[in-house]
Simulated assay, not measured.
Amino acid sequence: MRDYFDRGPQVQDLPGTYAAESTATVHNRTVEWTHPLGEVVSALVAAGLRIEFLHEHDVSLFRRFEAFEQRDGYFRLPADRPRIPLMYPLRAARG
């Protein structure tokens, strides 16, 4: 895992996809950036949007980290680790 507040790019060169890790793929280099929750919400507010809801979930739909275990159809951190938010739905509207 990487630091939540690390603002630098995360470069990976791994085959497969989040939906099918064992699928043979080419051109596997990806570059991703972390956008902390506060940055996302602040950008929406600065754009004139009103936050209608924000919910946090301690599950992921794919194996984002190697330590994840699949349980109940979702990926989670092992039971002996603290639960942390792994994904969130957010709805914003104009006005």
Rank of each mutant, 00 (worst) to 15 (best):
E32Q: 14
E39S: 13
A20M: 10
F53M: 06
R71F: 04
N28C: 11
G16Q: 01
L54Y: 05
A20S: 05
D13G: 02
P9I: 07
A79I: 11
R29Y: 09
R64W: 08
I51A: 06
A47G: 10
R94V: 13
A46F: 03
S42M: 04
A47C: 11
T30H: 06
G95S: 01
T25Y: 02
P89W: 06
Y18H: 14
H57F: 15
R83A: 15
R76M: 07
A93K: 12
M87V: 11
N28Y: 06
D3R: 12
Y74D: 03
R64H: 11
P15A: 01
E56G: 02
R83C: 04
D80H: 10
E52Y: 03
S22K: 08
G8A: 03
L86G: 04
A92C: 06
R83I: 09
Y74S: 05
R7Q: 10
G48C: 06
R81G: 06
R7C: 04
N28S: 11
G8E: 07
L77D: 05
Q10C: 02
V31M: 11
P78M: 07
S42E: 08
Q70F: 00
F65I: 03
L86A: 08
G48W: 03
Y4F: 15
S60V: 01
H27G: 15
P78R: 04
I51Y: 06
T34H: 14
G95H: 07
A19E: 13
E69C: 05
D58H: 09
P15L: 01
F75T: 00
E56T: 10
P78H: 12
G48V: 06
I84N: 01
E21M: 06
L44W: 04
V59F: 15
